[in-house]
Simulated assay, not measured.
Amino acid sequence: MRDSDFTGFRGPEFERADMAGARFTAVSLDGAEFRACAFHRVVMRGVEMADVTIDGEIRNLVVNGVDVAPLVEAELDRRYPDRRTFRPTTPEGFREAWDLDERLWEATLARARRLPPELLHESVDGEWSFIQTLRHLAFATESWVGRCILGDPSPWHPLSLPWDEMSPRPGVPHDRDARPSLEETLTLRLEAMAMMRRVVDGLTHEQLDSRTEPLVGPGWPDEGETFPLRECLLVVLNEEWWHRIYAERDLAVLEERG
């Protein structure tokens, strides 16, 4: 298809738009960018795709009759053998995963410390800075361990950082533009990591198979929700794994700038 085949508007931005059930026929999306978008039950037929990058949680993605999601997962495990450790099924496995996470982040932090401090506030390709990444990981642990597992209705530090697209919620901080120092951020980050350490160190099979109590008060996750405790811990491990991968990727770019 050629540019001349299309008419209409070019370059608009859609934010918090509900397009569920929309139908696109002979539409050019060349150069489009999608962030934090849901594509559940999307059907694409007769499409042309080249030089496309997809990062996210992918399940049941069928391309030309082949479910490629298991192939992607297998390739990621091949590239990153440690990744399997972050899908534990036993209390001992969760302790092993957290031990490994602490070691991996020690190396990533040592790499970050070699950069000029101002670079740790720089974004690469619109992603979070290194400092913002640490702030977000604190938020994730506070939410899924502090709020869900330990029952603290408001566990967040003022510098904790939710994901960008989260709508404002009473009592939940969301100061994306704050610029704390690395040491100030690490105080917050290490307190959250210590919270996770206490939980996994005392974890039993009975606890792992239990559910959390219904959440109390406004915040994230939502009031009244309850989760398998196992799921809460896996969410934290998943956040830890991927955000370290993203941090390492962006640190490589910042090293070139530095």
Rank of each mutant, 00 (worst) to 15 (best):
V63E: 12
D67M: 10
D67A: 07
D67P: 01
A69N: 01
L71C: 07
E73S: 15
A74W: 00
A74F: 01
L76C: 13
Y80H: 11
P81T: 02
R83H: 11
T85K: 07
F86W: 05
F86I: 06
P88R: 03
T89I: 12
E92P: 13
E92F: 07
G93M: 05
E96P: 10
A97C: 10
W98L: 09
D99K: 11
D99S: 09
L100M: 06
L100K: 05
W105L: 13
E106Q: 14
A110D: 03
R113H: 04
R113C: 07
R113M: 05
P116M: 03
E118H: 04
L119V: 07
E122I: 07
S123Q: 15
S123G: 06
E127G: 08
T133Q: 02
T133A: 06
T133F: 03
L134K: 02
L137V: 05
I149P: 02
L150H: 02
G151A: 11
P153G: 08
W156R: 01
W156D: 00
P158W: 02
L159T: 07
L161R: 00
D164A: 14
E165L: 15
S167K: 13
S167T: 15
R169V: 15
P173I: 04
R179E: 04
L182M: 05
L182W: 00
E183A: 09
E184C: 09
E184N: 10
T185A: 08
L186C: 08
L186Q: 02
T187E: 13
L188Y: 12
R189G: 03
L190A: 13
A192I: 02
M195D: 02
R197W: 03
D201E: 12
G202A: 12
